[in-house]
């Protein structure tokens, strides 16, 4: 009944599409897409720009910003790929992976993967008096005294900040950062630490 009609339609559409190509510009600019940890790596880099550490935190003007990854590393090589040779506040980055809480001391930024949160209290004790920007992945982490949570919401990441914890670490967060963040407070249970 319909015979070879589909084939004719194929060609007419193909023709239209070809026509379209020749008219349309060749701008096929692809949007950047990222996996969760590529995005988190980019966030770690950007966060460094919006945080003021006390002057005494760094040994000298050339000391790098050390990003510590505690326990099992979910980034793979993403952190190195994303940050590359970039600098923030004229400082290069150094990435340190470790699994003993006491090794947390030398970091300026410390990432606690969600899978390692049960050991968070041990880490927090080690760095209680230090200016370490702690970054986690859940709102529970932020409520338990962490400073920043990079939390997936639908298919994006959101930032949650605990200002009490930042203050205790003597870190100053820029208003630009706070402008795009949700604010959460330490819960009573976390307070005891």
């Amino acid at each position: 009944m319909k015979g070879r009609k589909p084939m004719e339609t194929v060609w007419s559409v193909f023709y239209c599409v070809c026509l379209f190509f020749s008219c349309a510009t060749t701008q096929g600019a692809e949007r950047i897409s990222a996996t969760e940890y590529q995005a988190k790596a980019a966030f770690l880099y950007q966060l460094a720009k919006f945080v003021e550490w006390p002057v005494a935190t760094f040994l000298d003007a050339d000391s790098p910003i050390t990003i510590g990854i505690f326990g099992t590393d979910p980034f793979g090589s993403d952190l190195e790929t994303v940050i590359g040779e970039r600098t923030a506040k004229r400082r290069r980055f150094r990435i340190k992976r470790f699994s003993e809480p006491r090794e947390a001391k030398g970091c300026q930024i410390l990432f606690i993967p969600a899978g390692e949160e049960r050991r968070w209290n041990e880490v927090l004790q080690e760095i209680a008096a230090l200016s370490v920007l702690t970054v986690g992945e859940t709102s529970r982490f932020v409520s338990a005294g962490g400073i920043i949570g990079l939390i997936p919401a639908k298919n994006r990441l959101s930032i949650t900040v605990n200002l009490q914890s930042a203050e205790r670490a003597h870190l100053i967060l820029s208003s630009q950062l706070l402008g795009v963040s949700k604010v959460r407070e330490t819960r009573q249970a976390g307070e005891k630490n």
């Binding site: 897409s33 996996t35 590529q38 950007q46 919006f50 990441l157």
Partner: peptide, 25 residues
């Protein structure tokens, strides 16, 4: 190649970034 350009996005761009990862979903 675009992965390394991620770090150049501003905070608000990063917040708009759709995560395409398998692991996210």
């Amino acid at each position: 190649p675009e992965t390394s350009r991620l770090a150049d996005l501003s905070l608000s761009d990063l917040l708009q970034l759709t995560i395409t990862s398998v692991s996210k979903k």
